[in-house]
Structures are given as structure tokens and as C-alpha cells.
Simulated scan of single mutants.
Amino acid sequence: MKNGDAEQARAYFDAVVTCLETTWEKHLSTAGLDHEPVKVKHVAKFPKKWCDMETYKSDSQVWYCEKTRTVGVQIGGYGRWYGKTSTQRSWLKKGFSTGDPGSCNTWTASSSKVA
């Protein structure tokens, strides 16, 4: 993905969401649970309030609105992703290769694997 290319960033994020939706649908239906895909909304910059959340208090680039089941993602703008690029790539590869959400449990990983 080219740095600063908003179209490529949107396409990449949408591909990740599609992959996650496929994986979660499979695991939830296997467990006998319903699954409803999320909607994705791309924004250049989040407003100060989005879905009753005060976004200006954080520099997160992704917000989830439970009442509308919408993932808002800031493409470009002033936010930033957390962690090193190499770490983010490692987690994405792990998730894609296993297709198992449990393989991406960052809560139990050592801090060096999530920095």
C-alpha cells in the first residue's frame, strides 16, 4: 500500500473487515449464535462527537458504534495506528493464515509482540 493513498487504504481496510466477517460468521454459526455483519463508514476526520462518543479525547482512527453496528475508520487525517508496522503485519499474517480469531489474542501475548 502506498503511503498517503486513501483509496488503497479504504480497499485494504474493507478487505480486512470482509476477512474478519467471514471468520466470525463461521465461528459464531458453529457455536449456534447469530451473526450480523457490521457496516463500515470511512471518514477523512471524525467529528468531535460520533455515536455519542467524544472522539476528540482520543487519537484513535477506528471507532465502533454498537447501536448502528457501524465501524467508523479515519482514512488520512490526524489519528495514528498504534504499534510498530512490523508488529501489525505479524498479527495480520497470523490471523489470515489461521482463520481463527483466537490466534490473535493480544491480551495474552507478551508486550514485545504487541508493541
Rank of each mutant, 00 (worst) to 15 (best):
V43L: 12
C19Q: 14
D59T: 10
N3I: 10
T85M: 01
T87R: 04
S97P: 00
V43M: 08
A115T: 13
Y12E: 09
V62D: 09
E25Q: 14
K57S: 06
S29E: 00
E21N: 12
T85E: 07
V38G: 00
T55D: 01
Q74W: 12
G32S: 06
R69H: 13
T55N: 11
L28Y: 11
R89F: 00
N105S: 13
V114P: 00
G99R: 10
W50H: 07
T108K: 15
Q74G: 05
Q8T: 06
R89M: 05
G79T: 08
W50N: 04
S103H: 06
A44S: 15
F13S: 00
V62K: 10
M53C: 08
G99L: 12
S112H: 08
V73K: 01
Q88S: 02
T30H: 03
W107I: 04
C104L: 11
V16N: 00
W50K: 11
K48T: 15
S86Q: 09
L20C: 14
I75G: 03
Y12P: 10
K26C: 05
K41C: 05
T70L: 03
V40N: 01
Y64M: 09
M1G: 15
V17Y: 01
G95S: 05
T70S: 02
T85C: 00
E21T: 15
L92Q: 01
Y64D: 05
V114H: 01
E25K: 11
C51K: 00
S97T: 11
K113G: 10
R80Y: 14
K94T: 13
G95Y: 06
M53Y: 05
R80A: 13
A109D: 09
V17T: 04
L33H: 13
S90A: 15
D14G: 06
V73L: 02
R89H: 03
S90P: 04
T108D: 10
Y64T: 04
M53W: 06
W63S: 07
A115L: 12
V71W: 06
F13W: 04
Y78G: 13
V38T: 03
M1Q: 13
S97L: 07
R69M: 05
Y12C: 13
Q8N: 09
S86P: 01
Q74V: 08
A9I: 02
L92S: 04
V16K: 01
W91Q: 08
G72Y: 02
C51P: 03
W107C: 08
T98M: 01
Y64H: 10
G4L: 10
V73W: 00
T85S: 06
Q61E: 06
K45D: 04
N105D: 15
S103R: 05
G76D: 06
K39N: 14
P37T: 14
A31G: 10
A11W: 02
K49R: 12
P101H: 11
V71A: 11
N3D: 14
T106Q: 11
G79C: 07
Q61H: 08
W91E: 12
A31L: 09
T70N: 04
R89T: 02
E25S: 09
Y12L: 14
G76S: 07
K26G: 01
G79I: 03
E66R: 12
K39E: 13
